[in-house]
Write a protein that binds this DNA or RNA. Sequence first.
DNA 1: TATCAGTTTAGAATGATTCTAAACTATTGA
DNA 2: TCAATAGTTTAGAATCATTCTAAACTGATA
Lengths: 130, 130
Amino acid sequence: MKDIKDFLRSNSLRPTKQRVLIAEYLFDGENKHVTAEKLSNELNRRRTGISLATVYNTLHDFYERGLLKKLSLGLDRVYFDTNTDHHHHFYSDKEQLLIDINNKLKVSGLPKLPKNKKTNKIEVIVHLDN
Amino acid sequence: MKDIKDFLRSNSLRPTKQRVLIAEYLFDGENKHVTAEKLSNELNRRRTGISLATVYNTLHDFYERGLLKKLSLGLDRVYFDTNTDHHHHFYSDKEQLLIDINNKLKVSGLPKLPKNKKTNKIEVIVHLDN
DNA sequence: TATCAGTTTAGAATGATTCTAAACTATTGA
DNA sequence: TCAATAGTTTAGAATCATTCTAAACTGATA
């Protein structure tokens, strides 16, 4: 509670009612993959009365502060990941399934980068069937 | 010309005026990464008068027949790749830059798959900065 | 060459996300 | 404690890539 407010303040975010509720849900210790819609549903279930616009704003604010990762899965919707360590994913479009790959997956044999470019990050997506 | 019609026919696609023009552009021997919009612009430049709806339909039809790959880059727009061999990409969101990685890039250390799932494909995206 | 299934198309619809601008609130300093 | 204000929230409109609709068109077949 108090720690959540401090957590937000230490990330240059005013601890508003809405942000506290969202942070409490997202950062409860369990890694989560959320879309704006899924998060909004959960918040409605909890009768928080937080608007969808605020859900979008807050996810974006948290992402900007590095508290969330944004997942590029070529979906329609954007996923935010509370696990901000470098990691990869199993992913099934059909099932809306997203599972962290937290172990020491390695990519080797990369060619040299295009001139004047540097690698930002390497993203591996293991697409699943069935 | 004739070969393009046969090519389309052999893929269960009627060689309509529109499909022939699009296939001629896409499959001219040079690998391409196109979005519906970029392709539509190119076709307008060529005064083909092909509608945007047909561009979408045709890209989809070609994709369904395995003539194009669809790229999952977490963009707003979808990219289609004329290189249908298994390969990976350098990608820069800022610059709308997309470059094939055609060499023997290898991914090792994958954990076992979730139960009852099989790997469809492994996609590696090397995100570039600058 | 008529028939008809397959195609094309303009424009409407969709749906996730962003924008707008007005109301609200946490913070700060007096 | 309070006023001022910068930062937030919100409903609803706007955006934009893509899909849908259903009417007109055309390649293939007999």
